[in-house]
Design a protein around this nucleic acid. Sequence first.
DNA 1: AATGAATGAGCCTTCATTCAT
DNA 2: AATGAATGAAGGCTCATTCAT
Lengths: 196, 196, 196, 196
Amino acid sequence: MPKVGMEPLRRKALIDATISAIGERGSLDVTMSEIAGRAGVSSALAHHYFGAKDELLFATMRHILAELTIDMRRALQCAKSPRERVSAVVAVNFSDIQFQAETIAAWLAFYVEAQKSSALRRLLKIYARRLHSNLMSGLTGILPRAEADRAAEATAAMIDGLYIRRALKDGVPNAATAIALVEDYLETKLGERQKQ
Amino acid sequence: MPKVGMEPLRRKALIDATISAIGERGSLDVTMSEIAGRAGVSSALAHHYFGAKDELLFATMRHILAELTIDMRRALQCAKSPRERVSAVVAVNFSDIQFQAETIAAWLAFYVEAQKSSALRRLLKIYARRLHSNLMSGLTGILPRAEADRAAEATAAMIDGLYIRRALKDGVPNAATAIALVEDYLETKLGERQKQ
Amino acid sequence: MPKVGMEPLRRKALIDATISAIGERGSLDVTMSEIAGRAGVSSALAHHYFGAKDELLFATMRHILAELTIDMRRALQCAKSPRERVSAVVAVNFSDIQFQAETIAAWLAFYVEAQKSSALRRLLKIYARRLHSNLMSGLTGILPRAEADRAAEATAAMIDGLYIRRALKDGVPNAATAIALVEDYLETKLGERQKQ
Amino acid sequence: MPKVGMEPLRRKALIDATISAIGERGSLDVTMSEIAGRAGVSSALAHHYFGAKDELLFATMRHILAELTIDMRRALQCAKSPRERVSAVVAVNFSDIQFQAETIAAWLAFYVEAQKSSALRRLLKIYARRLHSNLMSGLTGILPRAEADRAAEATAAMIDGLYIRRALKDGVPNAATAIALVEDYLETKLGERQKQ
DNA sequence: AATGAATGAGCCTTCATTCAT
DNA sequence: AATGAATGAAGGCTCATTCAT
């Protein structure tokens, strides 16, 4: 019997290495050798497990989205009212894990790559739709459908925008401020509604 | 008899070629040869005028921002009230020239590159601050400073976010919808204020 | 309880896999993994049994020649006259097993490899000499030694040439035509002789 | 004005280098660096002029065939009778330039590669047909069409076969012997005819 | 002013081979 | 007996950059 069961470990290590490499470089212009080196293996092994650089990058993006999905699900389960659902969605997007330089840099880089890779574009579209529907799951309990839709769209845009501005290491200084900004918008929007 | 005065023409042609190349590819991964080819010159000439690829890219970003600045100035001159100033700023960002696939792709690409190039990052920060101050030039006439500041920040984030979502060719379908979304936010925010 | 007696089975399977892989690819540029995969084992096992790729290729060539030798011996045993012996040699070379795309491709590939590998070259020389002597075993009964020698040489060359031309999937359409061509030569040559 | 007109020189040098490299190695397993090195340039330049290794190999094969064609044409122009035409064709194929280790090795290697590359296969088919038609241009003056066709086929096969056997550095020792063998066949074949 | 020529450095990828189990 | 794990070495190819003219 050979040494066995390394595959999942290596895949995980390589994906983690990819995230940190991209995060540090700030772009997808990282070499396979660099990534493999960080994971403590040879670049040949990275190819062995992922076939090609494209696929490693794709797997990495998928991993990031999967983690976000898990966090989101957990947060939504704790929410007890529509309003809390909305806040939960916002909070998760600015949680410590998501709203840090490395992850943000990776997000941006993947957005750019998505212009070329249709597979990646599809993945990001799925994320965008999921974010929208998660927001809607709360907003529809407060606003009429059409307005909820607009509010969801605006909120999502705001979240993405705050990410981008964060990447410049300027503007919004931290997660709390970012959350406050979005919550302020929501409060205004939903408060207005409740008065009507 | 050597041609004289070619320099500005060539520089302009090369910058235009850079924008269109980046826009088409959707990323900065365009070769100097590709750019030079589009401009109808040799890649050696591109180096002759710009020294290095980095510098050509930098000059291109500066050019894009300069154009945006001109548009912005013109739009602001026509605005007759603080509220109109705010709308003017929003409108310019979603004007036909700015809010199209090519330009958006270029923006995104530059944002990513800014992670590596501090010169580029500085440039984008300047743009971000200018956008903020332009928004403020209207908002301070309507809201108290601290709130105006928050509103400006939120509006700017929303604009950037709508750009990113547009890049996915999903979500926001056109400029009008994008403007409506931002204006809706502003209306809510400023309307709320006016009631107080 | 370890399986015993697997070695000969594995060796056979690997050699067969090598032949079919080479035949399909049309060259020796087949990977050990490809071969091992076809044989249903790991590439590590192929190394375990053959030591190195070169040796597997060598063993394969030797196997092909051995089979040809067996066929040849059988065919010659049935031949009842010198003239029949010659025809038998020709017939075997164009038998269904030998004169098909896969086998021919393998032959050609080995000829090329022989330029590099002296072991392989030695093997092919042995085959060439054996073909010559088999032809001679018939021809010496019909022609004087010197002429028989020349005829054998010419016949052998013709056979090899028909192989090569067959590899182009052009020219000689099938085994029957090829045999007819060689037999025509022999008939002319031997017929001429008989008249003298 | 830049240094100019190097392209044809470099292409020629690279093709020559390719032939000699293949000849020496005995196969197409030569690296671009090896070839470029022999031509006294960088491998990057080889790619610059030929795009890819495949294309360089293809150009090389085409060059070899072109040279053969030229030699053939010249030889045929000197032939004064159908019989002389046939001999001329044979002679050219065994001329000093063609029938030497390097060229033969290259031929063989290309035949193998043709199994994979359809472009190369097409090229070799053209050569095969041309050889056939050149032989026919003489043979049809001596034999009835059907027989001429068969004789041409046999002669062509014999020539190719003698090439292959030469590659083993065994059998036919030199060009003169090879020519004698083919001429002997032709003499028998044509002599027989003349008696009828 | 402009360019063809040329290259060095670097990256992705492949593959035979080894080793621990 | 057999294999998953792992790698070093090497090759094709790209590209920014330089230089002589």
